[in-house]
Design a protein around this nucleic acid. Structure first.
Lengths: 202, 202
DNA sequence: CGAAAAACTCGACAGCGCGTCGACTACTTG
DNA sequence: CAAGTAGTCGACGCGCTGTCGAGTTTTTCG
């Protein structure tokens, strides 16, 4: 817990300066290589003053993540609330996510890496994931009931695999946006692709 | 580089003791929470003596990984060298990988997490991944040429996505082996599942 | 205005984990 | 038994973290 209370004052500027410095540094190097000294120096305060504003480096990450809150859900509404292989909706959802990874890749990667061992980050990650997985699982259930999708893995398992794939693919990609079309294809196959098992002989 | 040269002697026992301690600790807690003191204590030597055997904690990881060398390739031969949706071969490949993740999950996860920022681990990871991706990509190319698989993402991209999915799914799973069947289905869909786009109206 | 309170700042300190160095002991091999 | 090599260890310095207490500013309000 930061000791800071309320009011628009000089301290607010410093807090923003820390956040801005963090964003700026994350544009250049991974989270693990950023030190509290650098954050403090960037905000023109001493290292110990940093602790007046944030409890740790990860608290800064949490704050940064908080600012990203809405962005993840918004563009997926159409896809998650729809039904059937709605290609444009899926592409929109993936494109938005890709852009986020392009712009905030190091922040997201750092947060993911630090999540085990940092309860606040773990909760953030779990909440994000669960929201997506649950809605996607519901969509799968709907599609199957409507005869739009073939049977297969339990909906929440399939949804979790899709979520894993997105994260792994974007986290590892040099150019997330270049992956969007391929991910669209692959996710559609995972959801709707019932392939015909060929007869076992020529 | 460790300063150690050759010969079967007392030191060999200590080296093994360190490795054993590492394995034992990895059964209880993640790599990041293991300290060199613990490793040394487990082998009944002082912390500074540890450095006579290994240069760092990650050097121990590398050694541990080295011991796992063959296990990854072996059981995938049938699947990677075959063609078409060979379900048993694919299942065998995935089952072996799942077992490895069950037994060595924390080691693998730790190695993966530490890979950026540790060249030897990064090289190990890259080599492993590239081998798999390349062989799988070749398989995809073959299948497509033979008319066994539909067109889709570039073979090496699709192969990389499948590799990512495996790693992410197993790394995050409480029970890797319980995922095998679902992964079989999903991978087959990614490779062979050409779904029929439904007509755009009811 | 001026005094108490709050917001804010900082240097000094203690802790932990890492990796190194140099001196010491114990084997082994001619 | 001498000399070299293998193995051991305590002490040190480093970098980063987080805390404490004492200081300075800024706000609040009687």
């Amino acid at each position: 817990m930061s000791q800071r209370r309320r009011g628009p004052s000089k301290g607010d500027l410093r807090e923003r300066a820390i956040l801005d410095t963090a964003r700026e540094l994350l544009g250049r190097k991974p989270l693990a290589e950023i030190t509290i000294d650098e954050l403090a120096a960037g905000a023109q305060i001493s290292r110990s003053s940093f602790y007046f504003y944030f409890d740790s480096k990860l608290a800064v990450v949490v704050a940064l993540l908080h600012g990203l809150a809405g962005e993840l859900g918004r563009d997926s509404e159409a896809w998650l609330d729809g039904s059937g292989p709605d290609v444009p909706a899926l592409r929109q959802s993936l494109a938005a996510l890709a852009t986020l990874w392009r712009d905030q890749g190091r922040l997201l990667a750092g947060a993911l890496a630090a999540a085990p061992g940092c309860p606040p980050l773990a909760r953030w990650r779990a909440a994000l994931r669960e929201t997506h997985v649950e809605r996607l699982a519901a969509r799968i259930t709907r599609d199957r009931a409507a005869g739009l999708a073939p049977d297969g893995p339990a909906p929440h398992v399939l949804a979790a695999l899709i979520d894993d794939l997105r994260t792994a693919a974007f986290a590892g990609a040099a150019d997330p946006e270049g992956l969007v079309d391929d991910l669209v294809t692959v996710e559609l196959r995972m959801l709707y692709g019932d392939f015909a098992v060929p007869h076992s002989h020529g």
